[in-house]
């Protein structure tokens, strides 16, 4: 695969739940090393689109091409095997389980016959905490349960987990929701570090300022359609904000 080839191409993706069509033919391209922000009001179809890309929902119609190959995603594990990781809005952590169990949930390191290599899981978790997650507090160890962590620390665990498995595409659904200013700054730095590692990301955030500071490109969704795509250099903060308001009021954007 050449560098010029896009990492992910979606063609005319449609998704209906019963008689309600949530995605009405989405076309979207994600390049290598590119951070793309999905913006749009509640109900625009952002979460559904993400769930199609991660294999949670099957699209009703359309084509997904990843690294030049058309793919069908049967489940979450299939997308992970291809190199698509997701940091869910809900973080997908289990509160009463230790960090070393949470990091490797669903793809444990095993020795034989499915017996856990607990030592290796703890060692890798410890390494990840110090290097990838920035969890250096002495009060948190690999044996700590998730429920004692702050919102930002939980988000660090979720992002660290996604980075650990060496994905090519990382999807972040509202990663800064409910975080303090300082924690938000750190999460955004994480997102930018994804680009530095040559990986791509799809980034959803309601805060236009976060989006504008972090993403290379903005894709605006409205009621199941892509209604605009802009490179960061094409728009200022204010123009992006104005456009969202315009979209909200008029239901369309002028390009």
């Amino acid at each position: 695969m050449s560098d010029a080839e896009p990492l992910l191409v979606l063609r005319n993706i449609r998704k209906s739940f019963g008689r309600i069509e949530v995605l009405k033919g989405i076309d979207l391209t994600i390049g290598k090393g590119e951070i793309v922000a999905l913006v749009g009001d509640n109900g625009a179809g952002k979460s559904t689109l993400i769930k199609v890309i991660t294999g949670v929902h099957k699209p009703s119609a359309g084509e997904i091409v990843f690294k030049g190959e058309p793919i069908t995603l049967k489940n979450v594990q299939a997308s992970r095997l291809l190199g698509i990781e997701t940091v869910y809005q809900e973080r997908a952590l289990a509160d009463q389980q230790e960090l070393w169990r949470n990091i490797f949930a669903g793809r444990e390191l095993t020795r034989f016959l499915g017996f856990l290599d607990v030592k290796a899981q703890k060692r890798e978790t410890g390494r990840l905490m110090r290097s990838g997650m920035g969890l250096t507090s002495r009060a948190i160890t690999v044996d700590s349960e998730v429920k004692g962590l702050s919102g930002g620390e939980k988000q660090s665990v979720a992002i660290g987990r996604a980075l650990y498995f060496d994905a090519d595409l990382i999807i972040l659904d509202e990663p800064t929701m409910g975080l303090s200013l300082k924690e938000t700054e750190r999460v955004l730095a994480f997102v930018r570090s994804i680009r530095e590692q040559g990986k791509s990301a799809i980034f959803i955030d309601h805060n236009i300022f976060h989006v504008h500071d972090t993403a290379d490109r903005f894709v605006i969704l409205d009621r199941g359609r892509v209604v605009g795509q802009f490179h960061r250099s094409e728009l200022t903060h204010q123009q992006l904000v104005d456009m969202m308001i315009e979209l909200h009021e008029a239901g369309q954007v002028a390009r």
């Binding site: 594990q77 992970r80 289990a94 509160d95 389980q97 949930a105 669903g106």
Partner: peptide, 11 residues
């Protein structure tokens, strides 16, 4: 502990 999380983690 958390059925939803387990599903999202592919369990």
């Amino acid at each position: 502990d958390d059925e939803q999380s387990a599903r999202m983690m592919g369990i």
